[in-house]
């Protein structure tokens, strides 16, 4: 009988996850260590000036948030740090240190978004990166229109990397970027979710769900 509900449960794992808000991270010392931020709270703590911005996804108008770190007003090149599932921009802001150490902060502006269902952005289904892809392209469009950025390096983590790959493969999203003369120059994938089906089957097995359940989702 319970098996009737399990496919829905497994499907829920694909579409949803519990959002990780800023408060949830800041109130949990273990999570702050896990995120690698300790007492850091925003780019200002890494010595960067920044703007806290809010914008909307296209086409479904989900409210999104992010930090724009304008390191060089003369360049139109931007690195976008893209977090994964059960994460938010707090987890990716520590890479500001890498950019500073590598002298990259004078060559690129930096954008650190909360994708949907994460941080200060609106709760919504994510579908293992499928909807995240729309948030990434929406971020690039916003940065192009409002900050005159036209060339991007996408630097992504875990499910965020799957989202980048989805975006590159979706003609509706890439056409929109091309029509606005927005280009992507390079991609970095850190610990990427590389195969959703295999990862779900592995996760189901770890939860003790028989494979037939996964097949029914």
């Amino acid at each position: 009988m319970a098996y009737n509900y399990l496919p829905r449960y497994a499907l829920g794992l694909i579409h949803n996850f519990e959002p990780y808000s800023f408060e949830r991270v800041f109130d949990d010392d273990t999570m702050k260590v896990n995120y690698g931020i300790y007492e850091m709270r925003d780019p200002g703590d890494y010595g960067f000036s920044y703007e806290d911005i809010s914008y909307y996804s296209y086409p479904d108008s989900i409210q999104l948030s992010g930090w724009f770190v304008p390191t060089n007003s003369k360049v139109h090149d931007c690195i976008v740090l893209i977090h994964g599932r059960t994460s938010n921009r707090l987890k990716t802001m520590k890479y500001l240190e890498l950019f500073r150490n590598g002298g990259l902060d004078t060559l690129y502006n930096i954008f650190i978004p909360d994708l949907r269902n994460s941080g200060k952005s609106q709760n919504a289904v994510t579908s293992m990166g499928y909807e995240f892809a729309e948030d990434i392209s929406s971020s690039l469009l916003w940065l192009n229109k409002n900050k005159k950025q036209d060339s991007f390096i996408l630097y992504s983590f875990s499910m965020g990397s799957m989202a980048v790959a989805v975006m590159l493969n979706r003609d509706d999203l890439t056409d929109q970027l091309r029509n606005n003369e927005i280009s992507i120059s390079k991609i970095i994938l850190d610990s990427p979710l590389s195969n959703v089906e295999k990862t779900l089957r592995l996760g189901s097995a770890r939860l003790g769900l028989p494979d037939i359940i996964t097949n029914r989702t």
Binding site: L168, K186, L189, P192, S194
Partner: peptide, 15 residues
Amino acid sequence: MKLSILLKNTNLPIL
């Protein structure tokens, strides 16, 4: 949803 399909048509440098 796997990289072998999704990245098939891109020639961007990827690390």
